[in-house]
Design a protein around this nucleic acid. Structure first.
Lengths: 213, 213
DNA sequence: GCACCGCCCCCGAATCTTCGGGGGCGTCGC
DNA sequence: GCGACGCCCCCGAAGATTCGGGGGCGGTGC
């Protein structure tokens, strides 16, 4: 890594931001070229200053809520990797920050060295995540995709279900599968029983929600 | 951390596994007490041996596919943190490993020190993830939750749509909202136009898929 | 004033869905 | 051989849905 990484810090807690900037500047290969105490200031600067590779952001409180700040920053500087540095570790905050496009999530308990390493990997296209946070993310991830219940649907039943989800009528679906209308109807009824629903609509909703298709 | 972390390694590449075990054993606070070349061997050992805190697993190839291996290991040793150590970085593999309950994901390009640090944070309840992989996970995450398109549905239209997704008929939905059947029908038609679908089924599927409800 | 839009209501006819029955064929395991 | 099960087919009647029309009320903005 011959080039130094240009870094901006957005941090409303003034003394912490200052100390962090000084500490990081002492490290080889990292140059903190700007420091702000509010997202809005950074928006303005993005118009005139060269865009940094990495943006360290405290999704704290000031004015604009941090999440929207990420969104705006991403619009203004798509190339910059936005790394969150905060004290919060609520699932919801983490979740929304990630959805808004954060490229990393650190806790303020991290050491300067950890932060420096994180900045480097963010600049290299990685996503440094505090293991604690990562555990949360992974849990959310698997929770969101776990309920892969097995309803014992047969292949044919799944075929029909897929077609229904795609918007076919029973008639259409039967035609596409090359079977008779009544046969298709039969399968659908069986699907209803197995999914414990009593209508096409609920079956489709359940199928999509639980990723059966 | 006064106690040493008990570690098992499951790695089909014999010499790599041996070297890694030796290297890790030289590190303070880590003891690799078992080493296997196939998941099945580990299953057996879990019956008689004390369960390790951390399980380093190469989701490579032998016999059982690695993903199912994770699932089984989680059943047999729910307390153990399973950390994947592999050369693969395809989205699908990563995704499924995480869904199966992996607590970490490292690449074999990692240094021994990195691996040791990862083992420590896994034992402490964290989820060490290679920043490269983390980026992938975060992208999957935000991609899965981004397409929050705005179809310009009115509040009333959304009400009806929600009820449809929950399995109501138009009549039921109308009753629940305290409006007439024909009015409900009206809204539904409008939803169809806005979502560009032509049937209840597709509307429900689209609504669920895109998280409009 | 007038257009536009959200909200509310109505009708009829064609079509689709649901659910109660009825049947048959082939394969697998006991 | 017999049951269980997947797959295939059929009927009819009650009810739901879709789509083509029709109407009205109140608010917002030009």
């Amino acid at each position: 890594m011959p080039d130094t990484i240009h870094l901006w810090i957005i941090e409303d807690h003034k003394t912490y931001g200052e100390r962090l900037a000084r500490a990081l500047n002492r490290i080889d290969g990292i140059a903190c070229t700007q420091r702000f105490t509010a997202c809005e200031d950074a928006f303005a600067a993005l118009g005139s200053e060269p865009v940094p590779q990495v943006l360290l952001l405290d999704v704290g409180l000031p004015g604009m809520n941090g999440i929207d700040g990420i969104t705006r920053l991403r619009q203004l500087a798509p190339a910059a990797a936005i790394v969150i540095l905060t004290v919060f570790e609520e699932d919801d905050k983490i979740f929304r920050a990630i959805c808004a496009g954060a490229a990393g999530y650190l806790l303020k308990t991290s050491s300067t060295d950890d932060i420096a390493a994180a900045i480097r990997s963010a600049a290299a296209g990685g996503s440094p995540i505090n293991p604690h946070i990562a555990r949360r993310v992974l849990e959310m991830f698997s929770k969101a995709n776990m309920p892969q219940k097995d309803y014992g649907l047969t292949p044919r039943e799944l075929d029909i279900l897929k077609l229904l989800v795609d918007g076919s009528t029973i008639k259409d679906a039967a035609a596409q599968l090359g079977i008779g209308y009544y046969t298709a109807d039969e399968y659908i009824r069986s699907v209803y029983v197995k999914l414990q629903v009593r209508s096409r609509g609920s079956a489709i909703a359940k199928a999509v929600k639980e990723g059966l298709v």
